[in-house]
Design a binder for these strands. Sequence first.
DNA 1: AGAATGAAGTGGACATTGTCAACATGATGT
DNA 2: ACATCATGTTGACAATGTCCACTTCATTCT
Lengths: 211, 211
Amino acid sequence: MPGPSTSYHHGNLRRVLLDNALELIVERGNYSFTMRELARKANVTHNAPYRHFADKNELLAALAEEGFEQMSQALVDECGSDCGLDPATWLKCLGQGVVRFALRNPFQYRLMFGDALADARTDYPGLMKASEVTFLLLVRSIQECKQAGLLREGLSVNEVAIGAWSLVHGLSSLLLAGHLRQKNETTTHLLEQLSHMLFEGILKFGDGPRV
Amino acid sequence: MPGPSTSYHHGNLRRVLLDNALELIVERGNYSFTMRELARKANVTHNAPYRHFADKNELLAALAEEGFEQMSQALVDECGSDCGLDPATWLKCLGQGVVRFALRNPFQYRLMFGDALADARTDYPGLMKASEVTFLLLVRSIQECKQAGLLREGLSVNEVAIGAWSLVHGLSSLLLAGHLRQKNETTTHLLEQLSHMLFEGILKFGDGPRV
DNA sequence: AGAATGAAGTGGACATTGTCAACATGATGT
DNA sequence: ACATCATGTTGACAATGTCCACTTCATTCT
């Protein structure tokens, strides 16, 4: 039963903490919130949050994990969960989907790929797992390209996957960090040009998917 | 005169703070050092550091700025400060130089491109300037390519610059974050493959620089 | 030369935070 | 009915960032 809000046990604290944390991150553009602050916002004493997260990093890791899950979901929604007819088109959709997700959810994306967790990332198996699932989507689309004989000679699936991820993540990252003057070109135009560039680089017959 | 270390005025505090901060960052892999800690390490009272940096962020920004300056210097050292004979070779050298700098100075690179400063980046003009100087190196090499008639039809210098930066920064970032299993392939082999991929994508005659 | 100004460092006070230990509450299972 | 254990509470403590008033010293102005 959805609880009497006055009960001794909150019953929903973990979720509330995560939601409030993300809200504060978005509001302020940084990770400066404190655990005690979260406790106050949830009408709970200063130590209650620590029953759910050992420290702030563990909470951030949980947020990042959810971010990967949302991104995977968004990609499947937009591009389907496997190659339809044309694997190159699938790859293109996935790549552009990543950038769009980043622009739509800048703070989650930063959490997922940024250095807030840095080397500590490997301490959170759930997070590692969630990120690998996402990566695998892109890898599979490239495997399909290879099987369909679309890749240039001498290119391994792994190399192309790294190249595609680098391009896509690099663009997202630079856009979010404000390193790129957005100039006149709309983002969608830019996405088209870069997709084209990549496909010229990796596909046998250049020119990318004929859509 | 280089001072008696016992004098009331430290005389060199700013530099010492920066050096010690970077040392702590490298040691711990995060930005958890405190200002008071830096003060103790420099044999100075807890408020002295604030005469040089308004807060921790300003200190981090200063470190990032020096990082950009070092990277520019490294690139010029390795690749020269302008196109020698072949602009495509220059571009290739610069791109690979960025990745190598990132791998050599992972913590500085994270500081420069990571989200420690995030949106606050624009608050530090010196940092913005230093980063633009670095970016300009790559842009100039691409302008030279364009002038030499090497670029494919329909590709603007700006678009190619964004593509090249994205690829190069994305790779560096993913490598440092540990998102890529390094697998068998040595990094240098990977760099060659990705360079090749990019050049196939942007150059008229594919195949990249003939070196 | 001597005074004045201001940059750099000191010292103390205070609210806030993370952390630890002991305790209270209530849901769950046998 | 009772024991157990996850969840939340309470109180204490050292460390931190921040504010303010004070000191030291180098530079500049007259």
